[in-house]
Simulated scan of single mutants.
Amino acid sequence: MKKTRNNEHSDRRRAAADAKAALVSAFRSAKEASEPTREARQTERRLIAEARDKRRAEREQMKLDERNRIAAEAAARDAAVAAAAKAEIEARELADKTRVERVLQDEAARKAKRDQRYANRKARQA
């Protein structure tokens, strides 16, 4: 019996290995050819990223400034409300104090009139 070789399978394997080697060598040569532009692209991407980070930081700073401004306005508004409430309380206390003083003065005047009447009556009886 004559031994025949199956060339189809070995041919396919050799062709696949050659194609793979060709792809690898093409990739390496393309990588070497694009080396100068790769650095330029990386530099450009780095600059774009830095500009993006700078804009983001500016936006965050603007938001922080706006929050601080709103907080300051709220604090000023609260202080004004507190000052108005304090002024109102002081006005009420002053009104109460003057009313008490008036009542005491009226009572003192009434007692003085009563004492005067008593003294007049005693003077008439004597």
Score class of each variant (00 low, 15 high):
118 Y>Q: 13
47 L>G: 03
100 V>T: 13
76 A>F: 06
44 E>L: 10
37 T>E: 15
27 F>Q: 15
68 N>A: 13
37 T>K: 09
71 A>E: 15
85 A>H: 10
33 A>W: 10
9 H>Y: 11
45 R>C: 07
72 A>G: 02
17 A>Y: 11
64 L>K: 13
78 D>V: 01
3 K>C: 00
93 E>A: 12
80 A>Y: 04
14 R>M: 05
117 R>D: 14
81 V>H: 06
69 R>L: 07
94 L>V: 07
32 E>Y: 07
63 K>S: 08
57 A>F: 01
40 A>Q: 14
88 E>C: 09
108 A>S: 08
19 A>V: 06
118 Y>V: 15
27 F>M: 10
33 A>V: 11
98 T>N: 07
70 I>E: 09
63 K>F: 06
94 L>D: 08
83 A>C: 01
91 A>G: 01
43 T>P: 00
1 M>A: 11
37 T>H: 08
69 R>I: 03
42 Q>M: 12
69 R>C: 00
2 K>T: 09
12 R>N: 07
106 D>Y: 02
119 A>H: 11
84 A>G: 02
44 E>Y: 05
92 R>D: 13
78 D>P: 02
16 A>S: 08
125 Q>N: 09
3 K>V: 13
108 A>L: 11
39 E>Y: 10
22 A>I: 08
62 M>L: 14
107 E>P: 00
97 K>T: 14
45 R>Y: 13
60 E>R: 12
119 A>N: 12
43 T>H: 10
